[in-house]
């Protein structure tokens, strides 16, 4: 049986405690949320924290709540707080993926978030895995997500214990791929991520939370913790997420396409198109977005956008399926996502 290595396990109950424990542990410490990413990695010995700070008992992190005044206003107007979802939602990082996918308010106001959450792995993993865990998911690679013995046989790779990136051996950096389904969605939505640190709280847009580097893939400081995600006001825009993978369950995306559009009548006033699983970060493709801004999502605009997204999409040999097909699918999936939004175009 594959087993975990020994470690010290800490279960703080307050944020303050958690931050202190993590800070005390230094670089040997890691947070664990649902454990569905960290524990397999520890069993394969490619993440080796000596101290694991569990966030499961930290109060206040597992919640879905209305954001301040906007939410109150919604309730005041309707006077039926349970029937009328609040406007802006704030998602606690420890919210499980199952909760996120099933939550009525999320489904009503941010169906794209519920949809992306529902597409992650399996129902069992979604019962354990969390929003924060998925957003901080370790980058993945076929050369990295292997047992110690396997990696030793190829003299390891630069992400762990070695110095070469086998995906691109002449590359100075690691090409492990961001495999989160929620990350491209949050970047497309321009969600705001709240980071708690020893010096207090700061808010970063999701698009600035990631680096295009398989090793240093988060801009988060070592002792910072992602505590919540603030979603934008749900009015006036539409979004969708399309995921490509071999099987309908278990599999990480080999391509994720998140598209966000702000409508001005039947015209696209603003847009963001973000690709998942083609780079070490959720990759925004501004040229693809530009191709639809100002249009009414005509077929020509959709085709132009899909082509614009296809060009910079550079899948690497780090996941399932062949590279050229995955690249080709960028065009198809962007097109499909845009056609779906076109179906819902306001008249």
């Amino acid at each position: 049986m594959l087993r975990l290595p020994p470690f010290t396990y800490l279960q703080p109950t307050t944020l303050k405690q958690a931050l202190r424990m993590k800070s005390d542990a230094g670089p040997d410490g890691m947070y664990v949320a649902g454990g569905t990413d960290l524990y397999p990695n520890m069993k394969r010995r490619h993440q080796e924290p000596k101290v694991v700070v569990a966030l499961g008992r930290v109060r206040g992190l597992r919640s879905i709540r209305a954001d301040g005044p906007t939410g109150r206003r919604a309730r005041d107007r309707s006077n039926r707080p349970t029937a009328q979802p609040p406007n802006r939602l704030v998602l606690g990082a420890m919210t499980t993926l199952t909760e996120l996918a099933a939550h009525p308010h999320v489904n009503a106001r941010y169906p794209v978030v519920a949809r992306a959450a529902e597409l992650i792995s399996t129902p069992l993993l979604r019962n354990m895995g969390t929003l924060g865990g998925n957003l901080c998911l370790d980058t993945r690679c076929n050369y990295y997500n292997q047992s110690y013995e396997w990696r030793k046989a190829i003299h390891f790779c630069m992400k762990k214990d070695g110095d070469v990136c086998w995906v691109a051996p002449s590359s100075p950096r690691c090409w492990a791929v961001n495999s989160s389904d929620l990350a491209p969605v949050m970047v497309a939505l321009d969600a705001q991520l709240v980071l708690a640190g020893p010096k207090g709280e700061r808010v970063v847009p999701a698009g600035r939370f990631y680096n295009n580097d398989g090793i240093n893939y988060l801009t988060k400081q070592l002792d910072e913790m992602l505590t919540e995600v603030r979603l934008p006001d749900p009015d006036g825009w539409d979004a969708t997420y399309h995921k490509l993978r071999r099987r309908g369950a278990f599999d990480f995306p080999v391509l994720g396409v998140a598209v966000w559009v702000r409508w001005d009548g039947a015209r696209v006033a603003d847009a963001r198109i973000v690709l998942g699983a083609v780079a070490s970060l959720p990759q925004e493709v501004p040229e693809a977005a530009r191709a639809i801004v100002g249009t009414d999502l005509s077929i020509e605009a959709v085709e132009a956008s899909a082509l614009a997204a296809f060009k910079p999409s550079k899948p690497m040999d780090n996941t399932d399926f062949g590279l050229s097909w995955r690249k080709e699918m960028t065009r198809q999936f962007v097109k499909r996502a845009l056609l779906e939004l076109r179906e819902r175009r306001p008249s």
Binding site: N142, A153, I154, D320
Partner: peptide
């Protein structure tokens, strides 16, 4: 690469699920 088995895992060896 050393004639390694590329995907010796339940995740990457693709066995059909219910779906």
């Amino acid at each position: 690469r050393n004639l390694m088995h590329k995907i010796p895992s339940m995740l990457e060896y693709k066995s059909p699920t219910t779906l």
